[in-house]
Design a protein around this nucleic acid. Structure first.
Lengths: 240, 240
DNA sequence: ACCTGAACACCGTTCAAGT
DNA sequence: ACCTGAACACCGTTCAAGT
């Protein structure tokens, strides 16, 4: 009877509430939860498997290896970074807004940013972001040749800033490290490192966001003034 | 007798040839050998300890943890990057030569570059490099405020390029990945990613060194044309 | 102080066997 | 095809005990 079946069904669920048919999405969701609650280095095959009430081998049905899992997490995280519209301002301001949005995602998940540097990304959400940025560069009148290389540099800078900055704030003892750095700069031997001693605290000045914004301005300004050389065509790799 | 002692000494050495008094340098040397022969992720506490014929706990006498070991390896690797003289050319060419030298070291050890992004470096060799670069920026007439932030960006870019590029070439299957990327760009949906489709192979053009050199030019040019805003002084953190 | 064996609490990945 | 338990070959770090 329906009643009896429902009851039995409920009891079964209560016993093992997380047990559901294994799917790619299900694994990804469990991974995202673990990421939020415990950080990327707890997003391990074994842990996700345990959360889903199975053995580690099961995850390998859907993900090639741990890196594959992490890459797919990032694209899931990127969500609508590239699609939600950006309004107002010059094209420079718009591209800065777009990249800041990207940086903010990476900022929330320090280790993801570091991973993003060592893996070619190719998820749909990432491609959308790249396309949107390229459109803005074109709008700004940047020649295609420079835009093609420039987008790489803009994304590389953004990712690197996130990887660098977010590590510190997320880690226990980050504050002490900052302080130690300040002392170090102050204590630096003026004979051995004259420039560092001379610039002193100027080296540590400014907030993360201010430095990031300045960095983007430098890149955008530099790109417009730096033409790519015509590459010397290598005859050995060119068909006649 | 001397003869007998020497013989006994030799035999003792032959039995356990690596056993020597444990020193920081000795551990570092063993670590460098392992790095060269097996890569950074084999530079583990346990492995170095085994190589030195002792238990893992012994390493903790000289290094706080695994990260500390890795950081000190990088500074050892940096050797004379910052001290051996750079001759000829404009200050731009000189700073490019200096950073290229830095990149080359990081290129040889992919994982070290990635690590360098997430850890504040402060070894003597690293500071020497920073100081030399700052001197060149000053020689080029870059104002101190911009130089202080600019050096950060130059080093960040260099490290990121090394982390990104070197991963691919060092990994098994890097060639296939490049190829897969090329196919991907070719196959991209022109409706969904119009800009990527439009630029096509332009996005993949150029060699690593050409892109790196262009990137440095962009940065150096941009820095000279981008003044730092006067930061809005935050009254809550300023003493009156 | 310096050094260490042993223990604790984890990992990724593969494989043979199950459904 | 999809899923899994068990096994293999590793990790970092701490601690109590030794010299």
């Amino acid at each position: 009877m329906a009643d009896k079946d429902t009851l039995r069904e409920r009891q079964r669920r209560r016993e093992r509430p997380k047990k559901a048919p294994l799917t790619r999405q299900g694994i990804l969701n469990a991974a995202l939860t673990t990421l939020r609650e415990e950080g990327l280095n707890k997003v391990t095959m074994r842990r996700i498997a345990t959360a889903l009430d199975t053995g580690p081998a099961s995850i390998y049905v859907y993900f090639r290896d741990t890196e594959d899992l992490h890459v797919q997490i990032l694209d899931a995280l990127l969500g609508h970074v590239g699609t939600s519209p950006i309004t107002g301002g010059t094209w420079q301001e718009q591209i800065k807004a777009l990249l800041t949005r990207y940086r903010d995602v990476l900022f929330e998940y320090p280790e993801i940013a570091r991973m993003a540097l060592s893996t070619r990304l190719s998820g749909p959400n990432y491609l959308t972001l790249v396309d949107a940025a390229l459109a803005l560069l074109q709008e700004g009148g940047l020649p295609d040749r420079e835009a093609a290389w420039g987008i790489d540099q803009l994304l590389l800078f953004t990712t690197a800033v996130a990887a660098e900055q977010s590590t510190r704030q997320a880690m226990p003892g980050a504050a002490e490290e900052e302080l130690a750095l300040a002392f170090e700069v102050a204590a630096v031997d003026a004979g051995q490192y004259p420039q560092i001693a001379r610039l002193g605290n100027e080296l540590l000045s400014g907030t993360g966001p201010d430095r990031f914004a300045w960095g983007l301005d430098v890149l955008l300004s530099g790109m417009r003034n730096t033409h790519r050389q015509v590459e010397n065509p290598d005859p050995s790799t060119t068909t006649p």
